[in-house]
């Protein structure tokens, strides 16, 4: 059994079996990343292109490290916005890259659906590394992996996702995957940050953070896009932090031993208090470390010649 698809565009489109296969595969690579020589020849001769239209040092570095540890050749390509303005479409750019015989294109783009558009237009495998507000599948996969390594079962798992859900691809990917796996997902944030009808996707919405955190086993904080202040989503960072910031007192409302997650980079003192970010319940650095193993797993599974 393998991952019988050319592209990894979303978790909404993956089956439970496929998600579990990726997590199991990541487990094998977790062992590899613990070795003295953290490199295996599985993707020797393959070319992975990181095509990042949006700057994201973390995700790009994580994919780059993952690809290099699999012995793939890695090219980082960050098209200047000017070439896009000149009328070169995403497909033009991608076809150029494909002509360099890229086997896998890892795409980060500001527009939802960019990865779908790309995948339709090129023969290379496309991995979505974040498209607009739509999905960020590998981030959610590493979140799931981190949860599982903590020994938590997905079925019935109480997960609180806190923050600007409407504008978060991380929230969407986690919501789709966690509900598929049978978790009880609560979304916490002001109504301005909840997308239309999201409760119909299987989540429960809370505007009162204290209520939403009750009994939660996993608290997933979203990064507040500070530049959104002034767009009438929230009045001030101060008020947001007071209403939806995760403090040590609030962590105590959750189930004892609950873990705190954050996709990074964190705004200390805004969505998460510094002592919480650095506490024992925080698995934020595990997420980063697991990210490489999960992405190795995804790259390995996508590297089949198809």
């Amino acid at each position: 059994m393998g991952l019988k698809r050319k592209d990894l565009l979303s978790l909404a489109s993956l089956s439970v079996d496929e998600i579990m296969l990726i997590l199991d595969t990541a487990d094998s690579f977790k062992e590899v990343t613990g070795r003295e020589i953290k490199k295996v020849p599985a993707l020797r001769g393959k070319t992975v292109v990181n095509l990042f239209f949006e700057p994201s040092t973390r995700t790009r570095t994580s994919f780059e490290l993952a690809a290099k540890r699999l012995s793939a050749d890695v090219i980082n390509f960050s098209p200047s916005t000017s070439s896009v303005v000149k009328g070169e479409t995403l497909l033009d750019t991608a076809r150029n890259i494909e002509a360099m015989q890229a086997d896998i294109i890892v795409l980060r783009h500001a527009s939802a659906g960019a990865a779908d558009t790309l995948a339709r237009g090129v023969k290379s495998s496309v991995i979505n590394a974040g498209d607009g507000w739509h999905e960020h599948p590998t981030q959610a996969l590493l979140d799931l992996y981190t949860i599982r390594r903590r020994g938590l079962e997905f079925k019935g798992l109480r997960v609180a996702i806190v923050g600007d859900v409407a504008h978060s691809r991380v929230a969407r990917s986690n919501l789709y995957a966690l509900t598929k796996l049978g978790a009880d997902v609560r979304l916490i944030g002001p109504p301005t940050m909840m997308p239309y009808g999201v409760e119909r996707l299987g989540a429960k919405v809370y505007h009162d953070m204290d209520k939403g955190l009750e009994g939660a086993q996993v608290i997933m904080m979203l990064r507040l896009q500070l530049e959104r202040q002034g767009r009438a989503l929230f009045p001030t960072i101060r008020e947001y932090a007071r209403l939806y910031g995760l403090t040590a007192e609030r962590v105590r409302l959750a189930e004892p031993g609950a873990i705190v997650m954050h996709p990074g980079p964190i705004n200390r003192g805004v969505e998460i208090a510094p002592d919480v970010a650095d506490s024992l319940s925080s698995v934020i650095l595990d997420q980063v470390a697991n990210g490489v193993a999960v992405r190795m797993g995804v790259l390995y599974l996508m590297s089949a010649s198809g």
Partner: peptide
């Protein structure tokens, strides 16, 4: 590996 249509499942 480079020739396969489906990658084999990894074990530890």
């Amino acid at each position: 590996l480079a020739l396969r249509k489906n990658q084999p499942v990894l074990r530890k």
